[in-house]
Amino acid sequence: MSASYQHSESVPEITDEDFLKFKEFFYRKTGINFELTKRYFVDKRLVERIKATNTENFRGYFALLRFQPSGEELQQLTNLMTVNETYFLREEYQFKCLVNSILPEIVQRKKGRDPIRIWCIPSSSGEEPYSVAMYLQETWPGIADWDVEIISSDIDTNILRRARAGRYSIRSVQHMPAVWLEKYFTGVKNEYQLCDDLRQAVEFTRVNLSEPADTLRYRNFDIIFCRNLLIYFDDLSRKTAAEAFYEVLNPGGYICLGHSESMSRISPLFKVCKFPEAIVYRKALEAR
């Protein structure tokens, strides 16, 4: 067997230089920063896509990523590179905060009968936005008087398809009260299918937070849930995201981050709000 034949049959090689080149490109496109500790994770997915696209090596694949007019391959790769681990009612204390502290404050100053607008990003497979809808339905008396719009966005188009489908594993629903599980889901083999009413309560859209044009039409939101996303960003991408949220929110609007995240360390644009159930962040009422 010749050396060249061996080479052509082997796994495409990703050199240190290739990795750095890709890391820089992917960061510019998505705001996601891969440290060296993620090298195995990244290499594995690059190799998978090099094979799937029949490009001969990293160089050819990288050219495809950069110059393909449709951007389809970049989207495919982004779908592979994003982490989508979540479950229903994760960090439930924030939903309690939403119902007990945030919403009463918002409805008090809401003019007319404009709907309350909630944005969940990242959507992941939909557990969070559906949890918000369920929580409001079950625990917020105001749902009888107010219209609510829930929009949920993600950079990963595959995960958005899964979110719209609303089919979940036992692990995803493990923290759900039995009565809610009974009420909103139907058992299908070893999985749970979310009912149509709740699936239709959420609008799913694709958004890249690092791309200003993507968030241009997102305006007039009252509450943003952005939990456990910014931990994957570096300081600059976090700032970019915070500035996007600032544009998206109404004056006096709230943003809820994951328990290990702090807006105060990211940007001075928001003020800390200490509610009994949770610490959240707020755009000043007088802001424009």
Partner: peptide, 17 residues
């Protein structure tokens, strides 16, 4: 009242460039 899907992807309002 209820959950509604009205504005998420509607044309941008006048103040959005």
């Amino acid at each position: 009242m209820a959950f509604v899907k009205r504005k998420a992807m509607e044309p941008a309002p006048a103040d959005v460039p």
